[in-house]
């Protein structure tokens, strides 16, 4: 399904593509990092604020 390359398009140069490809991984990393951080914050919030104060069982 690969279409023809559009780098030859007048409004889209190889330099533009290189610039975008440099930025994309940083954005993906920031998004993944934020998601993991939020998940960790949520997990530790439940652990320290709800689970631990409810006391021991066994």
């Amino acid at each position: 399904m690969a279409g023809p390359t559009r780098s030859s398009d007048e409004s889209f140069t190889e330099t533009d593509l290189d610039t975008v490809m440099e930025q994309v991984p940083k954005g993906a990393l920031a998004l993944a990092g934020t998601a993991v951080l939020l998940l960790l914050i949520g997990w530790f919030f439940v652990y320290f604020v709800i689970f631990i104060p409810r006391g021991s069982v066994g």
Binding site: G33, V36, L40, W43, F44, Y47, F51, I52, G55, S56, V57, G58
Partner: peptide, 28 residues
């Protein structure tokens, strides 16, 4: 590496609850 650290942190918290605070699933 970051994910590994997060997993290690969560495992440490689970072990702390189980071994130090004695929070364990009832197993009678």
């Amino acid at each position: 590496m970051v994910v590994g650290g997060a997993v290690a942190l969560i495992f440490a918290a689970i072990l702390y609850a189980g071994l130090v605070l004695h929070v364990n699933p009832p197993s009678n």
